[in-house]
Design a protein around this nucleic acid. Structure first.
Lengths: 321, 321
DNA sequence: CATAGTTATACTCACATAGAGCATAAGGAA
DNA sequence: TTCCTTATGCTCTATGTGAGTATAACTATG
């Protein structure tokens, strides 16, 4: 079993076969405009910006930036790696496709309409994820009943119990709370239950299963779900929201942005308390009067925080219960 | 700028150049034996198990499992992806090397000594990370003085301030607390300051800079640091410690394992309180008398928790301050 | 010009939780 | 027996979080 050839020899011997790999870079680029989170898409289709990692690219990150800029003209600020996966469809083929996905945050500056790209509200793709105005009607009206049908479809009793538990957990049934971080788990359940258009396997009996949310090309909606989940988790302990904010903003605007991302409302006084006691922001001195009520102070992000807490914490009134 | 060719065409056009990629899978496999965290290494050298992703592999994960088993005979249980990077050294070369690293958790069952692999205590590689018996002497005696020299070496005043802040934050100077999660940041600072053997750039003046910790091949120590950091973060909110435990264990054994991973001691009564009130474990009914004191009850992990909280939370008395 | 409506901002209170220390129980060893 | 060691249970306090209330400062409207 354990052969005694060294690492190096072994690598050399297998390099030929392993070379038949191509690596794709895929970007989930997020901006929040007017309290709506949006994702950058390209072409007419619902596709995320992507392109192959090439020899000319200095690094994975710079390759990604290059592709996004070339395809959308939009320069990226903050980016972080999401996940790497090998495309199942193409495995077993001559060529193996590896996809490396990234999350990018920017501001949607110029609202230039372009045929090559556009910003699309992320709740178009995940209507069941927006709980800001209460539980969205798709959930009780369409998805939950169908999910329960699906759980009972399982032959095995154990499988039935397992499905019930996963659904209850992911969608916050029984006494459980809705956990906004479980975006990917929910998408995967809906996929398994063939309630999203990408899962066409159940259409063989001809029944037009009603599906929910706008679909995307290939597995891009799944990647978007991964990005949303990551962002919803991350805003709770890192000051990343500010990457999405204009240079100056009111506390309510900041709150609305957080709420847009989390898909749920937060308690205003508590939000302000947390933001202020963490010294994340400082007043600019200006006020804005177009709020419809008492004028609000404008704040800016304290740039020094980036140095101080480059890796440190931030808290938001969104618990990880 | 924005060309209007579709995604598909664009991909096809560039496939040739992007094919010159090979993907390596690298594993950080961790076990905890006798209260010591260990990492699986191969060969005589200090290298992590790794090998190319090949056409025969069904998925990235199964490819990784295959390589680890082939090189060490050790089957893997829990694994999760760590990070994907393109090898800087080889970029610009004919071939581009992409490395996909994974974290794996197991138990070190058979203590079989083998020429092809072995388990090595992870604090051999990171002696400054073990704070269980107080601050390790390398820190005040060697590393901190040299780090402070390094911060003052910077020409630019801003750079100096920046370095000081990073060091203070990563190593918990001034009023700050030691944050055991910052394993990677600390390694990177030590690398920049040429205080680890892998950073040989400063040896050009002939001075034999004393360096700290056992080095590894290539960037494997950096990958190990990533794995340790991930594990130290993860044990705080996911029940992954149990992957490292034998089927039955005492609460003190469990605590020692957590402490071994975190590199710091925890308050015993609080630890027990947290574990028990979360229903993570159940008594087996047995007791063990070889503890040197009052016999301890044996516990086992409640398997149902894996279903219930497949993605849910666990808490340990290690705050994220 | 008063009043209602809207948002901003400041306080308060109850409750859960984490950190720390103390006390007692139950075994082995000297 | 006595001491030592570990196991196990309980208490106390500071802190943080969720939620509600009160007041301030503006706009719009009749």
């Amino acid at each position: 079993m354990q052969d005694t050839t060294t690492q190096a020899t072994k690598r050399a011997a297998t390099t030929n076969r392993s070379r038949a790999v191509s690596a794709d870079l895929i970007a989930v680029v997020i901006a929040v405009t007017n309290g709506e989170p949006r994702v950058l898409t390209i072409g007419q289709a619902d596709a995320l910006p992507s392109g192959p990692f090439e020899l000319g690219h200095r690094s994975l990150q710079s390759g990604l930036r290059a592709w996004v800029e070339r395809q959308t003209g939009h320069p990226l600020g903050y980016i972080e790696q999401l996940y790497t996966f090998a495309d199942r469809d193409r495995i077993g083929d001559e060529r193996v496709q590896i996809s490396i996905s990234y999350l990018g945050l920017t501001r949607e500056e110029q609202a230039e309409r372009s045929p090559t790209h556009g910003w699309r509200g992320w709740y178009d793709y995940f209507p069941w994820e927006d709980h800001r105005a209460g539980v969205p009607s798709v959930l009780p009206d369409i998805l939950m009943p169908r999910l329960l049908v699906w759980t009972d479809e399982a032959e095995d009793m154990n499988m039935r119990r397992d499905r019930r538990q996963r659904v209850a957990y992911a969608f916050g049934l029984d006494d459980r709370d809705w956990n906004e971080e479980l975006v990917l788990q929910r998408y995967e359940l809906l996929y398994e239950a063939a309630l999203v258009a990408e899962a066409t396997r159940h259409s063989d009996d001809g029944s037009p299963l009603s599906v929910s949310g706008r679909p995307m090309i290939a597995d891009h909606r799944r990647i978007l779900a991964t990005g949303i989940a990551r962002l919803r988790t991350k805003i709770k302990y890192r000051p990343v929201v500010f990457e999405l904010m204009p240079p100056a903003f009111t506390l309510l605007q900041l709150q609305r942005t957080v709420e847009a991302l989390a898909g749920r409302l937060v308690h205003k006084p508590n939000f302000r308390r947390l933001i202020e006691q963490q010294d994340l922001v400082e007043e600019t001195g200006e006020t804005v009067a177009d709020t419809g009520g008492r004028p609000a102070k404008r704040f800016r992000f304290r740039q020094t925080v980036l140095a101080e807490r480059a890796v440190a914490g931030t808290k938001l009134p969104l618990s990880r219960a």
